[in-house]
Amino acid sequence: MKSEVKARPVSRSRGRRLGAFVFLSPGVVYLTVLLLVPLALVLSNTVFRRGRFGGVVYEFTVENFERLADPLYLGVVANSVKIAAITTLIALLIGYPTAYLIAQLPGKWKTVALVAIVLPFWTNFIIRVYAWIILLSGPGLINSVLGTKLELLYNQGTIVTGLLYSYLPLMVLPLYAAIERLDPQLREASANLGASAFTTFRKVTLPLTVPGVMTGCLFVFVPSFGNFVIPEILGGSKSIMVGNLIRDQFLKARDWPFGSTLALAIIAVLVLLLLVQAWVTRRA
């Protein structure tokens, strides 16, 4: 008996370990092969020289990092941050009321509204972006309906428009999840205690949905920051973002080491943002 009692927890923990191993291994293999190994390759590229025809020459150098400090490239990074930040801010201003309204809808309409939000994702990204050209171009729909000759395309405004259009759902969904979870009694209590609707929003609703706000902002900022398709299609390549710069290093300039260094810099910025998000979420 004694031995059986002793043996049981051991075998259970062993079983648990086996279970953990079986269930974790696909994920671990996936992450290792598709994330860690490529990441290590990119990281290793950053300290070597470029090959004349692309590829990497294995001579140690820090010049890739020195180039990173060049005002030319810092300017491109700053421009990307600016465009992504503006996009994120507008997405938040539009997304929050949208999510709030959807959360107040009766059950059936909630589903309809959420499906409507996700619906654009059923069409290919490039096609949706390209459709804006048909709308906004010189001989396009808007100009021909209005009978005007407005120059609406190929500027930073259209880049922001395209990014906003593409990534707004990624703002609405986490916000909806956060607002939906709020206990309505909290707001009632606040009202009972004499707070105005605005004060209730400011002191109860908003602080409690800050994690959703952070997640939404991150979801919009990250793909906007690294985007290179929209600046090219809707921006006419007249202003470039860091994504274009990285793409060009690999596909035009044959400079893999510098492209990798730029990619690393982006990863560093994004990790920093994730840390901020985690910190804010924990505090909230």
């Binding site: 490529p38 590229n45 004349r52 990497v56 294995y58 290179f228 793409r247 690999f250």
Partner: peptide
């Protein structure tokens, strides 16, 4: 071209070990 740049990036990254002599 833009379109398959993502894929090409992946290809480039995986080919990282091939060195070219200048």
């Amino acid at each position: 071209a833009v379109a398959v740049a993502g894929l090409a990036l992946a290809v480039s990254a995986c080919g990282g070990e091939s060195s070219t002599s200048s």
